[in-house]
Amino acid sequence: MSLKRYMVKVCAIASGSNGNCYYIGTETEAVLVDAGISRRQIMKRMKELRLDISRVKAVFISHEHSDHIRGLRVLCDMHGIDAYLTKETLNKAHRNYHPQTAHVFKAGDTVQAGAFKVHAFAKQHDAVDPCSFRIEVEGMSIGVMTDIGAACQNVKAHLQQCDVVFLESNYDEQLLEDGPYPYYLKQRVKSDHGHLSNRQAVELVEQLSGTSLSTIFLSHISADNNRVELAQKAFEHLNERYTILPTNRYAPSEIVSVGEEQLSLNF
């Protein structure tokens, strides 16, 4: 009799305007969404979590802003990892971020990367061709949904299918209003092509989460216009329904293991 594991490990390597990187992995394989911090920092933080870079089969890039793509070239070229991004994102990204080999997908495509079925879908953000992702593996569905100005039908439809989601909770509306940003930047942040506020993120979960959703990582929390405690407070009335965890721009989050362990008889 042998124990077969069907556990999926999920965590944020980094999350914030200074860099984003999200990890989804099984016992043998993994993918990353975004590589917005340096390869050195990705390696350092993965080592802290005892995650093996050799398991990473692919990196999927959501859009061309440097906090999502900065470490892509060095990470992929040094470790032989496949890079996936849209043609428009690749063309718009700074040449310094281009890996030697890049695989191109389109919004609406489903990409098979090892055991992972990655669904890419268009979202509203001020980038040339922004996408979010829902990753299926071992019967689980994990969403990475940040940099969303307004929750379009794509976001809503994919959120309903998630067991775990990295959900943007970028700003507190009052802090943004009273904060140091110039007027034009405040307008950009709260526009339909900017970011989700704490309130908007809560409303999205209240209205649309599927019955399988168990864990929400509060993600891309602004250093200037939000506080972790404010984001957590906004969600506190949902604590009995979900495990709600903050992410960090300077350190990895805790690892959440989702799925089941099953016994298998071998004769």
Score class of each variant (00 low, 15 high):
Asp192His: 08
Ser212Asn: 15
Gln200Glu: 14
Tyr242Ser: 12
Leu167Thr: 09
Ile81Lys: 01
Ser264Arg: 05
Gly143Ser: 07
Lys44Met: 07
Ala251Met: 09
Leu213Val: 14
Ile13Leu: 11
Ala251Leu: 07
Ser264Val: 14
Ile42His: 01
Ile24Gln: 01
Met43Ile: 13
Leu51Lys: 05
Val256Arg: 07
Glu173Lys: 15
Leu90Gln: 07
Val202Glu: 12
Gly139Asp: 01
His119Arg: 07
Asn18Gly: 07
Ala223Thr: 15
Met140Val: 06
Ser132Thr: 11
Asn239Glu: 15
Asn226Asp: 12
Thr247Met: 13
Gln262Leu: 13
Ile81Tyr: 00
Pro252Ala: 11
Val59His: 02
Tyr242Lys: 07
Gly80Ala: 04
Ser257Leu: 10
Ser209Phe: 09
Asp82Ser: 15
Val189Leu: 14
Glu64His: 13
Val144Thr: 05
His158Tyr: 09
Ser15Asn: 13
Ser66Asp: 12
Ser132Leu: 10
Val205Cys: 08
Gly108Cys: 01
His125Leu: 05
His119Asp: 11
Tyr183Glu: 10
Asp178Pro: 14
Cys76Trp: 05
Phe116Ser: 06
Asp129Phe: 02
Glu168Gly: 02
Ile255Gln: 04
Ala115Pro: 02
Ser17Pro: 06
Ser257Phe: 01
Arg55Asp: 00
Ala120Ile: 00
Tyr242Arg: 08
His237Gly: 11
Leu263Met: 12
Ala30Lys: 01
Thr211Ser: 15
Val256Gly: 03
Glu29Cys: 06
His79Pro: 04
Ile24Val: 12
Lys186Phe: 13
